[in-house]
C-alpha cells in the first residue's frame, strides 16, 4: 500500500518535534517537568487555536495577518463584558461574533474590491487594534486603566483541570472539528479546490467569493476564542494583546505543512506546527542563552523546518512530474504503435 504524501509530510513535522523534544529532554533539566509540559500545551493552544482559523484561510489560498488585531479587539471587549459581570457563555458568544464580524469584514474587502490579502489584512489589523483602543477602559481624563477581572465564572475559562488548561481541550476539539470539515465535507473540498486553482473552481460552480469570505470569518472567530481564553488566564486585556500572533500563526501553519498560496495542508499539520513553534521557544529559554542568541536559535530552527519542507516539496514535485511524464510517454507509445499497425494493414 502506498503511503500518502500528506502522511509523509506530517512525519517530517512530527520527526522534528520528536528530535527537538529529545534534545531538550536530555540537555535541559527542567524541560521534562510536568509543569513545563502543561505550560507548553497552554502556550501552544493559544497559537494553535489561531492556527486552526489561519489554516482555513491559508488552504483557501489567502493569508490573514490581522489575527493579532482581532485578538486585541475581541479580547478587550471580552474583558469589559466580563468585568461588568456577564456570564462566560455570553462573553464568549459576543467575542466570537465580533471576531467573526472582523473576519467577514476582511473577506468582504478582499473579494468586493479585489484587494491583495496580505496588505489588506495588515491594514485591517491596525484598524482592529484601534477599535480595541476605543473599547478599552479609560478614566474621565482618558487615562487607560488596567482592569482586573473579578468575575469568577469567567475566570474559570483560564483555569485548568489537573494542570491541563481548558484552552488545551478547546484547541483539541477545534482541531478535530476543523480536520473533519476540511477533509470530510463539501465545504472542505471546495476550500482545497479554491486554494489550488481559484479560477477553475469558479468555473466548476464553486462560489469562490463566498468561500473566501467564509474562511476569513472562521479565522476571525477562532482568533476570538483564543482571545477569550487568554484574557481569562491573564485576568485582563491590554493594548498589545495578540501583537505578533498573526505572523506566528502563519509561521506555525507553514512549518506544519500548510502551503502558502493554498491547496495543501490540513488541521493536523497546523496542530503539529503550533506545538513545534512553542517547543522551540520553550526549549531555548532553558539554556540561559544571551537574548541575541535566543533569537538566532529560534530563527534557525524555523528555517530548518521550512527548508525540510521545501526539500520535501521539491522531492514530491519531481516525483509528480516524473509520473506525469511517464504517463505521457506511455500513452504516446501505445498510440503510435497502434497507429503504425493500423497504417500497415
Amino acid at each position: 500500500m502506498k503511503i500518502s504524501q500528506k502522511f509523509i509530510r506530517k512525519l517530517i513535522t512530527l520527526g522534528l518535534i520528536v528530535i527537538l523534544f529529545a534534545i531538550f529532554a536530555f540537555t535541559a533539566p527542567s524541560f521534562l517537568k510536568l509543569r513545563n509540559i502543561q505550560e507548553i500545551l497552554r502556550v501552544a493552544a493559544y497559537t494553535g487555536i489561531i492556527c486552526v482559523g489561519s489554516s482555513f484561510v491559508l488552504i483557501g489560498g489567502g493569508i490573514d495577518l490581522s489575527s493579532g488585531g482581532i485578538i486585541c479587539f475581541s479580547g478587550i471587549v471580552a474583558c469589559r463584558l466580563a468585568s461588568i459581570g456577564m456570564p462566560w457563555p455570553v462573553v464568549l458568544l459576543v467575542a466570537v461574533v465580533i471576531g467573526a464580524a472582523c473576519g467577514y469584514f476582511n473577506g468582504w474587502l478582499i473579494t468586493r474590491f479585489y484587494l491583495n490579502d496580505f496588505i489588506t489584512t495588515l491594514a485591517t489589523g491596525f484598524v482592529f487594534t484601534g477599535f480595541g483602543l476605543l473599547a478599552i477602559l479609560k478614566d474621565e481624563s482618558g487615562t487607560l486603566m488596567s482592569q482586573e477581572i473579578k468575575n469568577k465564572g469567567f475566570l474559570l475559562l483560564g483555569k485548568h483541570l489537573n494542570g491541563f488548561y481548558y484552552i488545551v481541550f478547546v484547541w483539541i476539539i477545534l482541531t478535530v472539528i476543523a480536520w473533519f470539515i476540511l477533509s470530510q465535507t463539501r465545504y472542505g473540498l471546495h476550500t482545497y479546490a479554491m486554494g489550488s486553482n481559484s479560477k477553475s473552481s469558479e468555473m466548476s460552480g464553486v462560489n469562490v467569493r463566498k468561500m473566501k469570505v467564509s474562511t476569513f470569518t472562521i479565522c476571525g472567530a477562532c482568533c476570538a476564542v483564543a482571545a477569550v481564553f487568554t484574557v481569562a488566564y491573564q485576568t485582563t486585556a491590554y493594548l498589545n494583546l495578540g501583537s505578533g500572533m498573526g505572523f506566528n500563526a502563519v509561521a506555525a501553519c507553514v512549518v506544519g505543512g500548510v502551503m502558502l498560496g493554498g491547496g495543501k495542508g490540513d488541521a493536523v499539520g497546523a496542530f503539529l506546527g503550533a506545538i513545534f513553534m512553542t517547543l522551540v521557544n520553550n526549549g531555548m529559554y532553558k539554556y540561559g542563552l544571551d537574548t541575541s542568541w535566543q533569537y538566532v536559535f529560534q530563527g534557525a530552527v524555523i528555517l530548518i523546518a521550512i527548508m525540510s519542507d521545501a526539500g520535501f516539496a521539491a522531492f514530491t514535485g519531481r516525483r509528480l512530474r516524473a509520473l506525469a511524464e511517464k504517463n505521457n510517454a506511455e500513452e504516446a507509445l501505445l498510440e503510435a504503435k497502434a497507429k503504425a499497425k493500423g497504417g500497415n494493414v
Binding site: S30, K33, R35, N36, E39, V43, Y46, T230, Q234, Y238, N240, L241, G242, S243, G244, N281, N282, Y285, K286
Partner: peptide, 17 residues
C-alpha cells in the same frame, strides 16, 4: 519584546526552571 503575554510565558518558564 514589550509584550505582556511574553512576560507571562517567561515568568512561567522561570517558575518551571
Amino acid at each position: 519584546g514589550f509584550n505582556p503575554s511574553n512576560q507571562i510565558d517567561l515568568m512561567n518558564e522561570c517558575i518551571t526552571q
